[in-house]
Structure formats: structure tokens, C-alpha cells
Nucleic acid binder design. Structure first.
Length: 955
RNA sequence: GGGCACGUAGCUCAGCGGGAGAGCACUACCUUGACAUGGUAGGGGUCACAGGUUCGAUCCCUGUCGUGCCCA
């Protein structure tokens, strides 16, 4: 029994439980052993995260695919889980410690702190997973994984060690993006370029050997910089070799103001004569461009900052080297200052001595850490790197060859662009939470990489014994007792970038490096679904590592969806306060409504603009479906076991079978093509505008009429079409459809595992195989094809008849509305000179048409009565005698307008047909169509003119 | 500066070579036995602009203008 009101909250909690208990989402269900697998790995959300609209969209789309394929009989594995989010998690736990006024991270020490992180994870790490369940995500929750799990960690170590052995992981001293607040390196992708209103400082650098005077331009060269404080680390000045102002200066030296360091002027193409003064200071240790310039010209790298981006000058050998007496005074004065305080001091000091020429306002992009939101410092450190360029080559090739394809295809260009310009990937992070790097250092800094401490230590001790640093006895002792080697052999403190482990996700979650049956069966996966904003995080990493270790790309398709924005098109952000919380929306309107709203908006070329109102609209759709099912129930609609829609006798029933078949085809093809919006919108139209608006309305007289075969068949068909609708809608609106499935009939099983309505002409792989194996000489048509032909239901005659009814009813309603005829007034209808076919149709539909068009009765006549409103329905006149009601002038102008339209059509077609080139060049069927159009328009015009004549006579 | 999109009804978007569409919003009427979270009807668009290709362009090409995003 269906409840009177649709209440999503009730249904959703109940269905979640039922699905969970049934094990419906589990991969490898025994009855699907022989089925083809369908695999999606979830792009692992951050364990600290909570569900935002982006997740809601991303997972709705994945769920549509999974439920669709599950209903098509595939063995679906949707692999869920979260990543450990090194920086974010560490920040969350540190904040928690602070709020609780407990000892901080450094006070606790590494081991204790990590215990706290695990404790936090146990308590709060399941948030987003539970939220995904509320959305209805049909993941195999029994297989949930976490990137710090034992197995996945083993995969990480193995990958690190192997890549290192292959020379694809190495240690290097390069500039990294350094976050001075979090005190760690971060990746390019964690850096946000933010437009900042800054300044351009023009500084005078005195030329060696000249007497510096601010009034003598030949005594100095002007450099422009956005970061004057870095001048302490300058080791050169670069000018463009083609810049005539400076060519004579190349090779000379300048004396660095305040510092006194002698640094060369070099010629380098990178210097843009148009920009600033045309000369730039070169600070190789603090700027990516300068680093390259420095390398080209052999300039030293002088690092003047510490890890927190405070000046470190005292005891800084690189800085002090070669400086004149008195330099240490400045060093002491500035030492320890924050970079922005230092900037002010240095600028003031430069100004005092006449070294500051001018300051211009300058809007420029400044890198910020996306977590800490502080300015990122290019910083010279030792870090571990992955040779991404080498790994990228096969990843590029996989897309070029079509082994992996992007949907929509144009994202491939972005992918190539990025992959072809990929930089070495810095994978070490100065954090505690994460996979600690499996490298051990000896006293001389030499490192030993191995999968286990035992192995690494063994190698190290062997080496140092051989080098006679220690005796064999000492070595044996240290090998036996870990405390003995403390301080001699130490493990690398750093951990790996979270993405290093996420990159392994498509196979580490399946049990790799163990040779599990799951790896065999579910790798490679079918599709990765992700937003374009993070294409490089997931796609690139998973592609590179997947191909390298599994010898096959991790997914054959990458579906890129757009972003969810607010109703005005602005990106949702906490600071703007325009965030729509998916859970709030689910509370208000239900998960099904949210999912359907997202799916209907998920077009390929646009971001989705979402508003609560839009979700409400889709909740209304759910209500509509609910009430349609209630209607069916109240009318005793049920499907006998042996019911076959293809054998229906009633035209109306054949028509809805025809329309259902068409909807099935549309929806199936749209999902197959990842056109979620087309699929959802096709269902919206079919349910509302076909099933509810016409089929149920037209069926009402039968359902409320006398018992008999027609009524029995209609009851069965109403139920059949309803079931097809529930199936077709299930991937989009799983909760309501499952509920309605359960309450509308006695079922063999859950809807989630029911068979997808067969698309006309589509063969399952199994069926295909059986067709293919049938030898061509075999005259027997495989039975499977016959069965499928029956499944493709088409009935143009039924379509024509119901179309006629629809047109008639619509036209009468329209004219009644125009003439302001009250609904309570029933009018007669006269069909003039009706064909036998129309007469027969009218007889069959008389009750329905009377009801829907509010008619008193229907009769036939040779011609329309005098003074009637005359409607043209599919070439024949239907008249409403409305003496006393009809406004002759208005009716005349209506008919004249109609005639005008017909005339316009004829003229347009005549223009075409009169054009020799058209007749000669256009395809025959188009010409034929145009001729038919002309005929039709002409016939319409003739009839309308007759009607007008009659009207004139009457008035 | 380089790249990718996108300018179609008030709004959000579909259509992408042969008669301009949907949803929402709006207007009018309707509490008719599934549904007012509803029904019926209606108004509303030189498909950004300019060229070109074509028998024919909202659709393909070029350019202009405008908008958004990504990378420098």
C-alpha cells in the first residue's frame, strides 16, 4: 500500500538499510560469476572532508553508471575509500590539540602524535563515507579502503623502492614550492596563483669602478623587482643582450647595495626590455626563473631565508662569503626578521642611501599555498623526486592510441598539454602523517632504500663494514639490536605526497602487490569520473603509475564533468557564503531530488548552476511519480505473470508500449554516451508528459468503466509501464523507485538487481557471443535475435491514432480557453465530413474525448454547422457549434491568422521548389519532403478558407 | 601572451545543415476522485555581430565583440 504522501526521509533511511542487508552492492556476487565485470574506483575523497556539491555530482554520476550496469547484469565493483590527506589531516589534528589546550605536535613527538591522528581517524574519519551513503552511492562498502591501510602502504613502499631501483625516483637539490607556515614542500598543484596589488620597486645598483651618485645615471643600473627583500641573495643582474641600453655593461660587475657583494651583469634572453627597466636582479635561490638564469651563467645560489621564511644571515656562510668588513653588522641587524618586515626595512634603508629610484603600483600573480593561504617561497632544499617525464611518455601514448579516451574528447588536449610539459614531481613532504620514506641514512649521508628496515640496515651495515667505518663485530651488533645503531643509521623523517599513494588507488585497492583474484578480475577499471579542475591529480598520477606497474592503463574512459556553481554562476566558496550544503538539500527535498537535479543539469559544455528551487522542482517530479503509482494502485493495476505488452490489443496500450520502447532506447543510449542530462530529461518528459499527462488520462474511462478484457489489459499495461519507468529511473532516483517497486507488487527481488529494460536491438555480450559463434552457413536464426525483435516494440498505427486524439483534445481546449468558455459549460462537437477512419476513432474515443475536452456530445455531419468554431485536425474539420458564445470577429481573425500561416508555409516551400539549384542539388528525400509539406499546407489552407467562408455566411 | 569553452525565450539550458525547443519564472482560468509538490491554456526569440562555404546556416568556416575558466 502506497502512503498518501511522499516523504523522502523515511524511504531513504529504510532503503539504505535494506540495500546494506541484501549485499546488493557487493562485487563478485555468486550469481554473477560469469558476468562481465564493470569497475569504477571512486576518486578517493580526503578523509577530513565532508560532502560538498562537487562530491554530490561526482558520485551521483558514478552511481548512475554503476546502477545502470548492475541492472544490465554486469558484476559491478564500485570501489570506495578515502585518502589520508597528509597536510589537511595533520592540520585538523593539530587544531584539535590546540582547541583542547593539549600539548602540541612537537611536544607530543612523532609517535604519540601519530597515535592521536589514528584516534581522530577512528572517530571522525568516516564522515564523508556516511554522507556518500546518504546520497545513495552504491559502492561495495565492504571493500572500503584507506590509503594508509596496511596493504596499500605495502604497495606504496614497493612502488617507491622499485622506482628508485629503476632510477625513476631520485634525490635532488632544487627549488621547491615551500610553505613557510606549514614548513613543508608542496606540489605545483597545491599552489594557487592569486592576483595581488603589489609594487614594482626600481633599485639602483652601482656599477663597479664608478662613483655612485643618484644624479649620475651612468654610475648605476636600475633593476625592477616585486620582492626587494630577496636582493640580499642576489648573485647577478640580467639584461637582454639585444637591449642597446645595456650591451656595453654586459660582463661588468655591480656592487650590491647595502651588502657590498660584487655580482656580474649577464646577458640573457629572458630579460624583457619592455618590462620594468629592462634589467632584472637575479636571485637563483629564491626564484624559479632566476634559478634557471643562474644555472646558465654559473651564478652561485645564496639562500637567505630559513624554513619559516625569516632572514638567516648571521652564520650564513654562503651569504657572508667575500663580503667586505662591516657586512656582518647589517646581517645582525636584519637576522631573524620575517620576510615582509625585512622588505620594509630594506626598502627604507635603500631609500636612505639613494638606491631607490621609484616605486610603481603593480598588479601581479603571487603564489599562495592552498591550505595555509600564505605566500609560497621558492626554496632550495633536498627533496625526493619522481622522474615524471619518463613515466608520462607511456601515459601520453595510451591516450594517443585510444587505449584510454576522454569524454568529452576535447579534454585530451588539456591532458596532453600538461603531460608534455610535466616537471619532476616532488614527492617528499616535511610532515609526520603519511607514508614515511623507506630510506635510511648512514653517518656520511649516504642513503639505503629498501622495502624493510631490516634489509636497508643490512645493506648499510654491510657497506660501512666494507668501508671499514665500523668493524664486522660492530656491524653484527647493530644488526641485532636496534638501539645500538641509533644515531648511526637513521630513517628519512619525511613522508610521501598523498598523491603518491592515491596514484596507486586503481590497483592497490584490489590487493596489489599481492596477486589477488580481484586484481585479475577488476583491473583495468572501466571509467574514472572526475571534475576537470583536478584532472591532473587523479588522471595523470593514476595513468603514470598504473601503466608502469600494471602494464595497462587504469581506465579505458575518463569522464570529465563540470563544476557545480550557485544559481548566479559563481563558484561556491565558504568565504562568499554561497555554499549549498548537499546534506541540507537532502534533508529538505530528498536525495533523489538532488540527484535528479544534478543529472538533468550535467551537460558536457556547461557548469551546473544549482539552486534550492531547482531541487524543489525535481522533488515535485518525484511526487508526481509517487502519485501516478498511487493512481495505478487505486485502480487495481497489476501485471499478471504471463503478461506480454507486445500482445496488447487496445490501441492505447499498444501506444504506451511503443512510447516506452522509445524512452528505453533514448535513456539507454544517453547513459551509454555519458549524456546524463539527456537521459534524465528523457525520463522527465516520458514520465510526466507521456505517461501521466496522456496515458493515464486516456486510460481513466477504461479503468473506471465496465469490467472486461479491455479493462483487464489496461490495468496490466498501466502496471507494466510503471515497472519499466521504475527500472529506467532507478539509476537516477534509487530510493523512491526501490520503495515503489517494493510496495506496488510482490517482487522476486530488489529493484537494484532487477533487469534493465532491454534496449531495442541491443545485444548483451553473452548474446553477441552466441550470435557470432553461429556459423553463417547455418540457416537458423539465433533465437536470441527473435526474442530481441519482440522486445523492440513499435506501432506507428497506434501512434497515429493516439496522436489524433491528442491533437483533437488539445485544439478544443485551446479554443475554449481563447473564448473564455467556463469549464462547467459542455459543448457539442461535430466532425464534418469525417473519413471512416476518423469516425471509427471517434467512436472508440468518445468517452475520453468528451471528458478531456469537456464536450456534451460528439456527432457527425457532412459539413460544419453554421456559426461554429471550426478546427482543422489532421486535415479534417472538427466544429464546435457555439451559437451565442462565438465572437464572429475574433473567430474570423483567428482563421485569417491560420490561413496566413499556411500561406507563409506555402510561399517558403515554393521559393525552395522554384529554385532549380535546390531541386538539382538537394537530396531526393528532402525535395520529396518539401513537396509533401506543400501539399499539406495547401490542403490546410483550402480547408481553412472553406471554414472562413462558412463563418462569413453565418454572420 | 598561450590554451579551452561559451554567447539561442526574463532565467537555466537542449538542438548543431532542411519548418526555432524544454524546464523554471510570468499571465489567465480551474480545488474535475492520483497529484494545488497539481491541471489547462497563453504571451515571449532578426538563435551576439559581420563576412564566407552551400540550393539552403541557429548549426560548418573565418573574423569581430562579449563572458567564463585554465596556464604563463
Amino acid at each position: 500500500m502506497i502512503e498518501k504522501n511522499y516523504q523522502p526521509a523515511d524511504i531513504e533511511s529504510r532503503m539504505s538499510r535494506i540495500w546494506d542487508e541484501s549485499g546488493a552492492f557487493k562485487a563478485g556476487r555468486p550469481e554473477r560469476k560469469g558476468a562481465e565485470p564493470f569497475t569504477i574506483v571512486i576518486p578517493p575523497p580526503n578523509v577530513t572532508g565532508s560532502l560538498h556539491m562537487g562530491h554530490a555530482l561526482n558520485n551521483t554520476l558514478q552511481d548512475i553508471l554503476c546502477r545502470f550496469e548492475r541492472m544490465r547484469g554486469r558484476d559491478v565493483l564500485w570501489q570506495p575509500g578515502t585518502d589520508h590527506a597528509g597536510i589537511a589531516t595533520q592540520m585538523v589534528v593539530e587544531r584539535q590539540l590546540m582547541e583542547r589546550q593539549e600539548p602540541g605536535r612537537r611536544d607530543l613527538g612523532r609517535e604519540k602524535f601519530l597515535e592521536r591522528v589514528w584516534q581522530w581517524k577512528a572517530e571522525s574519519g568516516g564522515t564523508i563515507i556516511n554522507q556518500l551513503k546518504r546520497l545513495g552511492a552504491s559502492c561495495d562498502w565492504s571493500r572500503e579502503r584507506f590509503t594508509m591501510d596496511e596493504g596499500l602502504s605495502r604497495a606504496v613502499v614497493k612502488v617507491f623502492v622499485e622506482l628508485h631501483r629503476q632510477g625513476l625516483i631520485y634525490k635532488d637539490k632544487r627549488l621547491v614550492n615551500w610553505d613557510p607556515a606549514l614548513v613543508t614542500a608542496i606540489s605545483d598543484l597545491e599552489v594557487q596563483q592569486v592576483e595581488v596589488k603589489g609594487h614594482l620597486w626600481y633599485l639602483r645598483y652601482p656599477i663597479e669602478g664608478k662613483n655612485f651618485s643618484p644624479d649620475d645615471p651612468t654610475s648605476f643600473i636600475v633593476v625592477a623587482t616585486t620582492r626587494p627583500e630577496t636582493m640580499l641573495g642576489d648573485t647577478g643582474v640580467a639584461v637582454n643582450p639585444d637591449d642597446e641600453r645595456y650591451t656595453n655593461l654586459i660582463g661588468k660587475n655591480v656592487i650590491l647595495p647595502l651588502v657590498g657583494r660584487k655580482i656580474p651583469i649577464v646577458g640573457d634572453e629572458i630579460s624583457d626590455p619592455e618590462k620594468g627597466s629592462g634589467a632584472v636582479k637575479v636571485t637563483p635561490a629564491h626564484d624559479f626563473t632566476d634559478f634557471e638564469i643562474g644555472k646558465r651563467h654559473g651564478l652561485p645560489q645564496i639562500n637567505v631565508f630559513d624554513k619559516e621564511a625569516c632572514l638567516t644571515l648571521v652564520d650564513n656562510e654562503d651569504y657572508l662569503r667575500g663580503l667586505p668588513e662591516g657586512a656582518s653588522q647589517l646581517a645582525e641587524e636584519l637576522n631573524g626578521l620575517d620576510r615582509f618586515v625585512a622588505r620594509k626595512r630594506i626598502v627604507a634603508r635603500l631609500e636612505d642611501f639613494g638606491f631607490l629610484e621609484k616605486i610603481e603600483p603593480n598588479v601581479h600573480m603571487v603564489p599562495h599555498g592552498d591550505r595555509s593561504n600564505v605566500v609560497i617561497e621558492p626554496y632550495l632544499t633536498d627533496q625526493w623526486y619522481v622522474d615524471a617525464k619518463t613515466l608520462a611518455a607511456p601515459a601520453i601514448a595510451a591516450v594517443r592510441s585510444g587505449a584510454t579516451t576522454f569524454v568529452p574528447k576535447n579534454w585530451e588536449k588539456t591532458y596532453f598539454e600538461w603531460m608534455e610539459n610535466i616537471q619532476p614531481w616532488c614527492i617528499s613532504r616535511q610532515l609526520w602523517w603519511g607514508h614515511q620514506i623507506p630510506a635510511w641514512y648512514g653517518p656520511d649521508g649516504k642513503f639505503f632504500v629498501a622495502e624493510t628496515e631490516e634489509e636497508a640496515v643490512g645493506n648499510a651495515l654491510g657497506y660501512y663494514v666494507e668501508q671499514e667505518v665500523i668493524t664486522p663485530e660492530q656491524g653484527a651488533e647493530m644488526a641485532r639490536d636496534a638501539s645500538k645503531r641509533e644515531g648511526f643509521i637513521t630513517r628519512d623523517e619525511d613522508v610521501l605526497d598523498t598523491w603518491f599513494s592515491s596514484g596507486l588507488w586503481p590497483f592497490s585497492t584490489l590487493g596489489w602487490p599481492d596477486e589477488t583474484p580481484e586484481v585479475q578480475r577488476y583491473y583495468p577499471t572501466n571509467v574514472l569520473v572526475t571534475g576537470w579542475d583536478i584532472i591532473f591529480f587523479w588522471v595523470a598520477r593514476m595513468m603514470m603509475l598504473g601503466i608502469h606497474f600494471m602494464e595497462e592503463a587504469p581506465f579505458s574512459t575518463v569522464y570529465i564533468h563540470r563544476l557545480v556553481r550557485d544559481e548566479k554562476g559563481a563558484k561556491m566558496s565558504k568565504s562568499k557564503g554561497n555554499v549549498i550544503d548537499p546534506l541540507g538539500v537532502i534533508d529538505d527535498y530528498g536525495a533523489d531530488a538532488l540527484r535528479f537535479a544534478l543529472a538533468r543539469g550535467a551537460a558536457h559544455s556547461h557548469d551546473i548552476k544549482l539552486s534550492p528551487q531547482l531541487v524543489e522542482t525535481n522533488r515535485n517530479f518525484a511526487t508526481k511519480l509517487w502519485n501516478a503509482c498511487r493512481f495505478a494502485e487505486m485502480n487495481g493495476c497489476a501485471m499478471p505473470a504471463d503478461f506480454d505488452p507486445a500482445n496488447a490489443q487496445e490501441t492505447l496500450n499498444r501506444w504506451i508500449a511503443h512510447e516506452t520502447s522509445r524512452a528505453t532506447r533514448e535513456v539507454t543510449e544517453a547513459i551509454e554516451g555519458y549524456r546524463f542530462n539527456d537521459a534524465a530529461n528523457a525520463m522527465y518528459r516520458f514520465v510526466w508528459n507521456v505517461y501521466c499527462d496522456w496515458y493515464l488520462e486516456l486510460a481513466k474511462p477504461v479503468l473506471t468503466g465496465e469490467e472486461g478484457t479491455a479493462k483487464a489489459e489496461t490495468r496490466a499495461m498501466v502496471a507494466w509501464a510503471r515497472d519499466e519507468i521504475l527500472k529506467l529511473l532507478h539509476p537516477f532516483m534509487p530510493f523512491i523507485t526501490e520503495e515503489l517497486w517494493a510496495v506496488t507488487a510482490k517482487r522476486d527481488g530488489l529493484l537494484v538487481l532487477a533487469d534493465w529494460p532491454r534496449k531495442a536491438g541491443a545485444l548483451s555480450d553473452e548474446q553477441l557471443a552466441s550470435v557470432v559463434t553461429t556459423s553463417p552457413s547455418d540457416a537458423v536464426i539465433p533465437s536470441v535475435i527473435l526474442a530481441l525483435d519482440a522486445g523492440e516494440f513499435s506501432d506507428p498505427e497506434a501512434e497515429a491514432e493516439i496522436g489524433w486524439v491528442v491533437d483533437l483534445v488539445t485544439a478544443i481546449r485551446s479554443v475554449r480557453a481563447e473564448m473564455n468558455i467556463a469549464p462547467s459549460v459542455l459543448t457539442p462537437l461535430v466532425l464534418a465530413a469525417a473519413s471512416d477512419e476518423s469516425k471509427a476513432r471517434a467512436q472508440r474515443w468518445i468517452d475520453t474525448v468528451k471528458r478531456l475536452a469537456r464536450l456534451a456530445d460528439v456527432s457527425f455531419a457532412d459539413r460544419a454547422p453554421e456559426g461554429a468554431v471550426q478546427l482543422l485536425i489532421r486535415g479534417e474539420v472538427a466544429a464546435l457549434p457555439l451559437k451565442g458564445v462565438i465572437d464572429f470577429a475574433a473567430e474570423r481573425s483567428r482563421l485569417e491568422k491560420e490561413i496566413g500561416k499556411a500561406d507563409g508555409d506555402i510561399k517558403r516551400v515554393d521559393a525552395k521548389l522554384g529554385n532549380e539549384k535546390f531541386v538539382a542539388n538537394a537530396p531526393e528525400e528532402i525535395v520529396e519532403e518539401e513537396k509533401e509539406k506543400r501539399e499539406a499546407a495547401l490542403a490546410r489552407k483550402t480547408k481553412l478558407q472553406e471554414a472562413l467562408e462558412r463563418l462569413k455566411r453565418a454572420s
